[in-house]
Design a binder for these strands. Sequence first.
DNA 1: TATTGTTATACTCTATAACTATA
DNA 2: TATAGTTATAGAGTATAACAATA
Lengths: 168, 168
Amino acid sequence: MSTRTKRWPNSDDFGIVDGLVQLSAIVQRVLSDVAASEDLSLLQGRLLGVLRDHEPTMAQIARILGLDKSSTTGLIDRAEIRGLVERHNVPEDGRAFRVVLTREGRRLASVLGSEVTAQIDELTASMSESELRQLSSMASRVVIDFADRHGIDISTVPVQTPRAPRPR
Amino acid sequence: MSTRTKRWPNSDDFGIVDGLVQLSAIVQRVLSDVAASEDLSLLQGRLLGVLRDHEPTMAQIARILGLDKSSTTGLIDRAEIRGLVERHNVPEDGRAFRVVLTREGRRLASVLGSEVTAQIDELTASMSESELRQLSSMASRVVIDFADRHGIDISTVPVQTPRAPRPR
DNA sequence: TATTGTTATACTCTATAACTATA
DNA sequence: TATAGTTATAGAGTATAACAATA
């Protein structure tokens, strides 16, 4: 389909495909390591990130994280057992729960947020102000384009993560 | 630690931290979806990517993918059952196996590679040649910096993936 | 009828610990 | 002794299907 010349791989430049794939792997690795430093999985860390700014229902969490509703039940069960979240009744809908951070959950979410920022800063430590602006701008462009094309609410993308396949 | 001003979040720019985190999530999502389109998990897809250019031993696969050797046993078992890889004896070392793609494994690896390239191209379809060069160059910069600082063999980074935590 | 959520089930993926076989 | 790999075990995370309760 695309006939553009998009790759110039050499020793200093992996080309756009490998460059983005490798960069994304490193960022995910950082997120995973940060979560692990608080004895959390990547997924639990992402959950805390979502709940920091929202109090979604189970169904909303499923949509945001790209999980089946049944997977969400287990995820919230484990977080609840660990004392990080609570299920609150929703007065307007007797079927739904609103998932809310506990005090400890909020503390952890804050720690994770700070640490991720610090680590990403470190990742880009060698770049100049102007390079950072460019990188930030272009990354945002790709994200916004993707969201537009997939009809995704931008506010949910930050926590969008790889979905597992369904091998038979 | 860092006193640099690194964020200029507004409606069009999420800032460097959220920008990179969101971008990486999208790329991982693409990789996962491509693998899923061939009924493979993200990990199995990454395995095929590695084996496309190497014939590593079990221990080397563990190192490249950041897994414990016991996890690698299961990974290769499942791939072997599916007919994607074979364990070959290593003449020089009676303990070791070299993992090699089967014909079908090689076919799938090729399909996945093409599809990932196509999808990443699409992800960046709105960018100009010059923007793509910049993005590619900067992504590579971050990757190389990270590899340098962590003493990682660049050739293994493309397939480096988030590691799972070890909650007690 | 449709939606929200849980349960039952099965599988992938992950690590730790203990083990075998080879170097 | 050290290394390569497997097995046993435990648990997180994932989906599908069937279900109960509510809208």
